[in-house]
């Protein structure tokens, strides 16, 4: 099963919508609640990253019988130093975003912890692509 969602940069009021939709679908497929919770965390963090940092993004979800693949591609500033971005506590979020309780530098580590595979690639000035996989 394939699903696709558009994510609008800067639109915090809609952040989490795609993650919620995927979660509902996984529930209908009777995936274990523990696995659904892991996927939900990873998807939400990925969605918020697009909202907080990029102009727009696109989430493609591919649900197989034994695993889920997700690819999130955004058009945005890109990530200068991916290893640095993966460090707990490092963030380039604006003060406005931080005041909302985002930008604590925990998003990418949360994704890493809640997925079986994660790949982050970026081209400066063009955008960032995040791929992740979780086994059911």
């Amino acid at each position: 099963m394939k699903l696709q969602y558009e994510i609008q940069g800067g639109d915090f009021s809609a952040a989490g919508r795609a993650s919620s939709e995927v979660k509902k679908t996984l529930k209908q497929l009777n995936i274990s609640p523990q696995v659904i919770r892991k996927i939900s965390v990873a998807l939400y963090e990925a969605e918020v990253n697009v909202v907080a940092h990029a102009f727009k993004g696109d989430m493609k979800v591919d649900i197989n019988p034994d695993r889920i693949f997700v690819k999130i591609e955004d058009e945005g500033p890109g990530i200068k130093d991916i290893a640095k971005a993966m460090e707990e506590g490092f963030s380039t979020a604006t003060d406005e975003v931080r005041q909302m309780g985002f930008g604590a530098g925990m998003g990418l580590p949360n994704i890493k912890r809640n997925t079986d595979e994660m790949r982050l690639t970026s081209v400066m000035g063009e955008g960032t692509t995040l791929e992740m996989m979780v086994k059911f």
């Binding site: 965390v41 939400y44 309780g101 925990m106 912890r113």
Partner: peptide
Amino acid sequence: DLLSDVMG
């Protein structure tokens, strides 16, 4: 008050 802290 950190949303990612709660998520994690």
